[in-house]
Nucleic acid binder design. Structure first.
Length: 468
DNA sequence: ATGTGC
C-alpha cells in the first residue's frame, strides 16, 4: 500500500480512494519523507480500512508517529458525521483517555539534580506502578460513580488539586454526558482499587528540565520562563477501568455490526451507528473512562506535590507546582468542525492523537532517554487534521521485539550515562521501553511543526523517570 | 494498553 502514497507537499502524502475497493474517502499522512520511510505498510493499510466505514469524513489522517495498532494505527484521527456515521470502540482503543499532565515548578536543574537520587525512589514509593497495581484509595461504589460522572470536580472537593488544575485541563476535567449506568459492574470492580495508579508499558512519571524555549511569549503565559527550569510529566490512562469498558463495548459493537448490516474490512473496527443505542451507550461509558483518567492523573499529581514538599522542605504552592496543562490522546469527541465550508458536528476519533486547537497546549511525550515537547495548536490543524496532532515519538519496534533485542539493566546503565535516573518495577519494562524501540522524536516534531499543525514552544529532556 | 493468549 505504501507505494501508492502520493506526495502532495513537503509534509503531506495522500492515498486516493481508488487505491483499493470500497474506500469512501481518501486518506492522508502528515510526515516528512524521512518519517514516511519509518511507517510500516500494515499501518498504512489500516488507514485505508477506516476510509471504508459508513459516514467517514474526508480525509482519514495518519500522523507522523503512526504505527500499527488494534484496528487503526496509534497516531491517527478520523471523523464521522453525526447523522449516519458510526462511533467505534475499536477506533478509540483500549486505553481510553491515555493522556499527559505537565506540571511546572520554579526549581532549577541544579536544585533538582542534587535531590534526584532521593526524589525518584520517593516518587516511586508514593505512586503505585505496574500492571495490576492497586492504589491507596478505597472507593465505595457511590464514590466511584462520582468520579465517573464528575471527574476533577470530585478530585478537588476531596483534596486532590485545585480549581487551577481544573481550568488547565481539557474539558475542565469533566466531559459532559458521562453515564455510570452504562458501565459494567466488572469495569467498576476493576476500576475502584486502581484510582491513583500509574500502570505499565509506556506510562511514566518523569522529572524534566527545559532545554529550549522556542516561543517565549507563549511559554511565559504557561509559566515556563527559564532554560533549566524543572517540570514534571505524568503519562498514563484509565487503567483496568477503561480497558474493561473498551472490552465490553467491543463485544457489544461486534454484535451491532451484524445487527445493522455494516460491512467491515477488519473486525477489530467494531462500531455502531451514531444514533443507535450501541453507539450512544458506548459514548456515555467511554466518557466515564475519560473522567476516571483525568482524576487518576490529578490524584497522582497531588501525591507528587506532597513528595516534593518532603524532599525540598517547601510548600508546593511556593514551588509553583501548577498544572501547565492536562489532556488526553485516546478519545472520541463530538466536536464542531468546518467541513466543505459548512460548520458541522462530527465524532472525532483520536487514537494516539492529541487535540491541537489554536493556541492551546499540545503535550508530546518522547521516551525515557529523549526529549518531550510542549507545543501549541493552530488554525491549520483545524483545517488539515480535525484539530489534532501526534501523541509521542511512536513505536518503531513491537514490545515483543524490543524485549528480545534489549536488556533492561543495560538500558538503565545507558540512561545513567546520560544523567537520567530510571526506576521500574521490573527491568523488562525498561527493555520494552528502550528509547531505540521508538522513532526519533525530533523527526516527528519536525514533521508536525513543519506541517504547521502544532508549533514548538518548549523542549524538555528527562532527569529521572519512574516506570511501571 | 491490560488481573500481559482463548
Amino acid at each position: 500500500m505504501k507505494e501508492k502514497l502520493k506526495q502532495v507537499s513537503e509534509y503531506v502524502w495522500e492515498l486516493d480512494k481508488n487505491v483499493r475497493p470500497k474506500m469512501r474517502v481518501k486518506a492522508k499522512i502528515i510526515a516528512s519523507k524521512k518519517v514516511v520511510e519509518t511507517i510500516d505498510d500494515a499501518a498504512v493499510e489500516q488507514l485505508t480500512n477506516v476510509a471504508c466505514l459508513p459516514g467517514v469524513i474526508e480525509p482519514v489522517v495518519g500522523l507522523p508517529d503512526m504505527h500499527w495498532g488494534y484496528g487503526l494505527p496509534m497516531g491517527a484521527v478520523s471523523a464521522f458525521n453525526a447523522e449516519d456515521g458510526i462511533i467505534s470502540a475499536g477506533l478509540c482503543g483500549f486505553d481510553i483517555n491515555c493522556g499527559i499532565n505537565s506540571i511546572r515548578t520554579n526549581l532549577t536543574y541544579d536544585e533538582a539534580r542534587e535531590k534526584i537520587k532521593e526524589l525518584i525512589p520517593a516518587l516511586f514509593s508514593v505512586v503505585p506502578c505496574g500492571v495490576g497495581s492497586r492504589g491507596k484509595l478505597r472507593l465505595s461504589p457511590n464514590q466511584l460513580d462520582e468520579v465517573l460522572s464528575r471527574g476533577l470536580n470530585w478530585a478537588v472537593e476531596n483534596g486532590y488539586g485545585t480549581k487551577n488544575d481544573i481550568e488547565h485541563t481539557e474539558e475542565n476535567g469533566c466531559i459532559k454526558g458521562a453515564d455510570p449506568s452504562k458501565v459494567s459492574s466488572l469495569a467498576k470492580r476493576r476500576g475502584a482499587p486502581q484510582l491513583g495508579t500509574l500502570g505499565a508499558g509506556n506510562h511514566f512519571l518523569e522529572i524534566q528540565r527545559v532545554t529550549d524555549i522556542f516561543d517565549e511569549e507563549t511559554a511565559r503565559k504557561w509559566g515556563v520562563v527559564d532554560k533549566d527550569q524543572v517540570l514534571i510529566m505524568i503519562h498514563c490512562g484509565s487503567r483496568g477501568f477503561g480497558h474493561q469498558v473498551a472490552t465490553d463495548y467491543l463485544k457489544i459493537q461486534e454484535r451491532a455490526v451484524r445487527k445493522y448490516g455494516i460491512w467491515l474490512p477488519d473486525r477489530q473496527l467494531a462500531c455502531a451507528p451514531v444514533k443507535s443505542k450501541e453507539g450512544q451507550d458506548y459514548f456515555a461509558a467511554m466518557k466515564c473512562a475519560v473522567n476516571y483518567s483525568f482524576t487518576n492523573r490529578l490524584v497522582m499529581t497531588q501525591w507528587v506535590r506532597e513528595t516534593f514538599e518532603k524532599v525540598f522542605g517547601r510548600s508546593w504552592e511556593d514551588m509553583d507546582m501548577q498544572t501547565v496543562y492536562a489532556l488526553c490522546h485516546n478519545v472520541v469527541k463530538l466536536e464542531e468542525h468546518t467541513i466543505n465550508g459548512e460548520r458541522r458536528k462530527v465524532y472525532v476519533h483520536r487514537k494516539g492523537s492529541t487535540r491541537a486547537f489554536p493556541g492551546l497546549p499540545v503535550l508530546i511525550a518522547g521516551t525515557m532517554g529523549t526529549a518531550s515537547y510542549i507545543l501549541k495548536g493552530t488554525e491549520k490543524a483545524m483545517r488539515e487534521t480535525f484539530g489534532s496532532s501526534v501523541h509521542g515519538a511512536g513505536r518503531a519496534m513491537s514490545r515483543h521485539a524490543a524485549i528480545k533485542k534489549y536488556w533492561g539493566e543495560k538500558v538503565k546503565q545507558e540512561l545513567t550515562q546520560k544523567g537520567i535516573t530510571a526506576k521500574s518495577t521490573h527491568p523488562k519494562i525498561l527493555a520494552e521501553e528502550a528509547p531505540q524501540a521508538y522513532k526519533d522524536v525530533e523527526m516527528v516534531i519536525e514533521s508536525i511543526h513543519g506541517a504547521g499543525i502544532s508549533l514548538k514552544v518548549v523542549r524538555l529532556i528527562p532527569m529521572g523517570v519512574c516506570k511501571g
